[in-house]
Design a protein around this nucleic acid. Structure first.
Lengths: 128, 128
DNA sequence: CTGTATCCCGTACGATACTG
DNA sequence: CAGTATCGTACGGGATACAG
């Protein structure tokens, strides 16, 4: 599974192409990581994983320490990036619900891979 | 369905334990991501993937735009984190070689998973 | 050759106040 | 309720100079 590669070219669904150079690889990973950059994005992601739907105030309550500004800002970015779906109900008082997109949900396995990797870290041999 | 699997507890090799709460998951992913944070870490990583061994000046030349300060700094962090091995040859002039540790090499599949995920991103429907 | 020490700056983030 | 506006700050990172 972790198969780094072999013949991926001309695969029928043909979306994913192995980066051809180390530089390209680094750049593409950086681009992927940019979707996760931001003090609160991962927290939001995990609150919404599993198809959960939360409204603004619920997220605010669920995430201790976040300010309205930051919550709003990060949600907007995630929406623009296609990670999050935002649904506005034209009511009074206003209600806005947030959920992950399919693509957002699909992040889960990749994060899992990262978690698995991190969990294999050898203990430092020196006393640092 | 975030839940990729079910009973992981008491697995024989028993190293990896699924995070029990969203918060824990977010925190652990953040910790994992911290190993990759830094303007030049990924570039360095990709230069060293595949078991390549490079000395300081070689990395400097291979990474356009990096300063000695940053290169040194990021390499030190990666060394402390256990991603990179640093070998000093007590010669004149000094020679220092850098390579990835096993754990560092093992990052590759996880990054691949991230790359695959990113490659499935739907095109924006709006004109942004 | 392989670094460290200073100085400087942009930006991400936090706190607070205000609005439809 | 669900945000935006404004201000202040901490820190990562660039440029440059110096050192073993």
């Amino acid at each position: 599974m972790t198969r780094t590669h072999e013949n991926v070219r001309d695969s029928p669904e043909g979306k994913y192409e192995e980066p051809q150079t180390p530089e390209a690889g680094a750049v593409r990973v950086e681009e992927a990581l940019k979707f996760l950059e931001g003090r609160w994005k991962l927290v939001i992601l995990f609150k919404l994983f599993g198809g959960r739907v939360l409204r603004f105030s619920a997220l605010e309550r669920a995430i201790p320490g976040v300010s309205q500004k930051m919550l709003s800002q990060q949600l907007r970015q995630m929406e623009r990036d296609g990670l999050v779906q935002r649904v506005v109900y034209p009511e009074v008082p206003p209600r806005v619900e947030y959920a992950l997109t399919e693509w957002g949900q699909a992040l889960c396995p990749a994060l899992d891979a990262l978690l698995r990797w991190a969990s294999t870290r050898p203990a430092s041999t020196d006393g640092s």
